[in-house]
Design a protein around this nucleic acid. Structure first.
Length: 563
RNA sequence: UGUCCAAUUGUGUAACGGUAGCACAGCAGAUUUUGGUUCUGUCAGUCCAGGUUCGAAUCCUGGUUGGACAACCA
């Protein structure tokens, strides 16, 4: 090894990319790859799905292939078109395009039925009359072999007849199932005569009443991959034990040999990820719906102000591997700050106001000051910010008896009002209970931004808004939904809801500079020195509403917290 | 008392028998009209025990720890 800088093309690969490159080199699938994203339309997509979406679409992009969107809709009991639409919207919003390759497992029901018949004819599948309980009991346990079904050795003819009768609706749910005939003593539970078809007298969101038997996941997923000529079928670790079955079907059905590769699903600190728990948060009213900005659903993140680019960057940054992982939520927050810092227009807003009056500034005068819309952008345009005698500043930016580390306003001290003047506190007015109601300052006209005197050193710079020009806005201050890194860490008999943060949402009235007027839904701003905020869909011209996406890094909070 | 999978700084992720690197987080400093950004520096790691080898995070054996698997869910 020498110290040469590695070119981009030699950047390290994740283990899936290693497999793909090996396969390409060995010509396993020819010169191209083809992936798929296979959601079940029974819930909303979350950040964990985003990882999978970025992985599947990202791989295809990298190696010049295509990605299909395929709905795994083999269970009409739980699935619905409502979810199909939201899933498509979310994938598209994330920035991925599946072209015209929108497929459904239900598109293949006829073929799947024919595959089942083929297995019966080969003597590899049989109709079983055992009840749910009996099948479960006969399956054994991971450490104890199962026992064979008494119906295991029916003739091919009888199986064919019975299976057709199942399809024709002759039997009720639970009366019969079609099972593969593999090995009831296999150490792998999934090989113990798995169920291929079950009877469900329920209309399907796409096939209506055509079918009353539906294929199981194992009998549908892999075959759909195969029918679509998917080269690399990427799924999460819990399907690893299904892989022998996946490959058994490919072999016995003699179909296109898609390759299943498993990776570790995403976990994040201070949140829950399972569909079941997310559903409870919604159903039990801990949050206001699936798109509540505190939810790590794609639609929740969108409403919170996360951008597609930030989520893609996150997926890239966390990597892919097979070991269980818990990603620090700070990584996600870093990614959105990184993006918004470069793109979000700046504005000043005061969230917790206290009045400030400039005694030597003319009453009734208004000046228009200039502020860069985005200082990160060299070519940034300017915005107009009105200034007057009567202002509001952040209550936290004033301290009567400050420690020496405090760089803001205090009696007798100077501070800069951003884009405006250097001011000096000369008096403090309090009410009967000692609560500060107004801060009295003088301003130095020589220090207006742009003037030579403005370059004078001062300890700090604070934001402000002009009282007569301020725009009121509702701000929704979101914080993490759970108090513990691992919300599932609870005492016996309790559950994760115990760890919900009671202060995950605080609503305040902010006073904003006029440039935020007319903000559109999903439009992001940086409220200077505070954080990134995004206009909510509840916002109207009469009542602006902003969601706090994430705070700015707050070094002062860290310092003051230690004191 | 089973099968499969995994184990690298606090958290992720590289290193494919040859200098343990990168990112986030932390800490310290510089710059700054955002206590933001940016920049610099810094802390900190190969689960354990054997073996193979000139050389092991990497290969082998045994252990330990964690995870998955016993829906007619996916």
């Amino acid at each position: 090894m020498n110290s040469e800088i590695k070119p981009e093309s030699e950047k390290s690969l994740n283990f899936i990319e290693v497999f793909v490159e090996e396969d390409m080199k060995n010509n396993r699938f020819g010169k191209h790859i083809h992936t798929r994203f296979p959601p079940e339309p029974n819930g909303y997509l979350h950040i964990g799905h985003a990882k999978s979406i970025c992985l599947n679409f990202g791989l295809a992009q990298k190696y010049g292939g295509l990605t299909n969107l395929r709905f795994d809709d083999t269970n009409p009991v739980t699935e619905d078109v409502e979810y199909v639409d939201s899933i498509k919207e979310d994938v598209r919003w994330l920035g991925f395009d599946w072209g015209d390759r929108e497929y459904y497992a239900s598109d293949y029901f006829d073929t799947l039925y024919a595959y089942a018949v083929k297995l019966i004819e080969k003597g590899l599948a049989y109709v079983c009359d055992l009840s749910v309980e009996e099948i479960a009991n006969n399956r054994g346990t991971p450490t104890r072999p199962g026992v064979e079904s008494p119906f295991r050795n029916r003739s091919v003819e009888e199986n064919l007849k019975l299976f057709e009768e199942m399809k024709n609706g002759k039997y009720k749910r639970g009366e019969k199932v079609l099972r593969a005939k593999i090995d009831m003593a296999s150490p792998n539970m999934h090989m113990r005569d798995p169920i291929l078809y079950r009877i469900i007298h329920e209309p399907h969101h796409r096939t209506g009443n055509k079918w009353c038997i539906y294929p199981s996941y194992d009998f549908a997923h892999g075959q759909c991959d195969s029918l679509e000529k998917i080269t690399h079928s990427i799924c999460t670790l819990e399907f690893e034990v299904h892989r022998p079955l996946y490959e058994w079907f490919i072999k016995e059905l003699e179909i296109f040999p898609s390759r299943q590769i498993e990776f570790a699903r995403l976990n994040l600190t201070y949140t829950v990820m399972s569909k079941r728990k997310l559903l409870r948060l919604v159903k039990e009213g801990y949050v206001n719906g699936w798109n509540d900005p505190r939810m790590l659903t794609i639609c929740g993140l969108r409403r919170r102000g996360y951008t597609p680019a930030s989520i893609r960057a996150f997926a890239e940054r966390i990597g892919v591997a097979k070991r269980d992982n818990i990603i620090d939520i700070a990584v996600l927050e870093f990614c959105i700050r990184e993006d918004l810092n470069k793109t979000a227009p700046r504005a000043m807003a005061v969230l917790n106001p206290v009045k400030l009056t400039l005694i030597n500034y003319p009453e009734g005068k208004t000046e228009m000051l200039k502020g860069k819309i985005n200082p990160e952008d060299e070519n940034s345009a300017f915005r107009d910010i009105p200034f007057s005698k009567h202002l509001y500043i952040e209550r936290d930016d004033f301290m009567e008896n400050p420690p020496k580390e405090f760089h803001r306003l205090s009696p007798g001290k100077e501070v800069r009002l951003k884009y405006a003047y250097i001011i000096k506190c000369v008096d403090v007015i309090k009410d009967a209970s000692g609560h500060i109601t107004e801060i009295i300052c003088t301003y130095d006209p020589e220090t207006k931004s742009g003037l030579p005197q403005a370059n004078r050193k001062v300890k700090g710079t604070i934001h402000w808004v002009s009282e007569p020009h301020a725009l009121k806005a509702e701000v929704r201050l979101f914080d993490r939904l759970f108090l513990k890194e691992n919300p599932d860490e609870v005492d016996e008999g309790h559950d994760f809801t115990e760890n919900i943060n009671p202060d995950s949402l605080k609503v305040a009235e902010a006073l904003c500079e006029p440039s935020v007027d007319g903000a559109r839904n999903l439009q992001s701003f940086q409220f200077e020195r505070i954080g990134y905020f995004c206009c909510d869909k509840d916002s109207t011209p009469q009542q602006l509403v902003f969601n706090r996406t994430v705070t700015l890094k707050d070094t002062w909070a860290k310092i003051s917290g230690k004191m």
